[in-house]
């Protein structure tokens, strides 16, 4: 009988499978520690001292956020600028802002935004991506939504829309009324504003930069 080759030996492959799996798992766990530190939420002190965090603290709602091309990184990054009023205030404490964000994040789950929209690109494809919704031109001074909802500011217009979405339709495919209260809407807008400040490595690309280039128009 010919000598049995190691390549056709089940024990050999069983051990290889165990080693490969163990090695990959350990590497993943190690990377998870590193990533967890990098995506932990920043603090109010970080914001005041200009420390850039991938996920800024909740008090980022006190500041103006823009999405600008970074030549060093070759794509757009969120930039946190000077103070900006949010529902008439720019002095939310860490606790107040944290409570708003908490309410908004809870609302985003209990109202099931993710089964129509994508958040950070994950979710459903029935409605626009919300990653940078806070920065969408439609909500800005040049957009139509403030006039449509009869509100003076972006955050009030968004909150009004979220409470009565099917009252302000812009397309045949409408967002339904989800029973969102005024307080919940405020939390959700804080949640959306916070999300727009997360460093997503340049996703989405060219957000809001190109206007009206479709069909040669």
């Amino acid at each position: 009988m010919a000598k049995k080759s190691v390549w056709s030996d089940n024990r050999f492959w069983q051990r290889s499978a165990a080693w490969v799996t163990g090695f990959a798992s350990i590497l993943l766990i190690w990377l998870t520690f590193d990533t967890s530190v990098q995506i932990a939420m920043g603090t109010d002190a970080d914001l005041q001292n200009g420390v850039t965090k991938r996920v800024p603290g909740p008090t980022v709602i006190n500041y103006k956020i823009t999405y600008e091309m970074s030549t060093a990184r070759g794509h757009e990054v969120p930039v946190i600028g000077e103070k900006e009023l949010f529902f008439g205030r720019d002095d939310y404490s860490e606790e107040e802002a944290g409570a708003l964000l908490h309410l908004g994040k809870l609302g985003s789950q209990t109202k099931n935004c993710m089964n129509c929209h994508t958040l950070l690109g994950n979710g459903a494809y029935y409605a626009p991506d919300l990653t940078k919704a806070w920065l969408d031109p439609a909500w800005g001074p040049e957009g139509s939504m403030q006039a449509m909802t009869g509100k003076e500011t972006k955050e009030e217009a968004m909150a009004e829309f979220l409470q009565h979405p099917s009252t302000y339709p812009t397309h045949a495919r409408m967002m339904p009324n989800l029973g969102i209260t005024a307080e919940e809407a405020k939390g959700l807008v804080a949640f959306l504003k916070h999300m727009s400040s997360i460093d997503t490595n340049g996703f989405p690309r060219n957000f809001g930069k190109i206007k009206g280039a479709v069909h040669g128009k």
């Binding site: 909740p58 944290g98 958040l119």
Partner: peptide, 8 residues
């Protein structure tokens, strides 16, 4: 509350 940690 941290949506990045959530999705991770």
């Amino acid at each position: 509350d941290n949506i990045s940690v959530d999705q991770y």
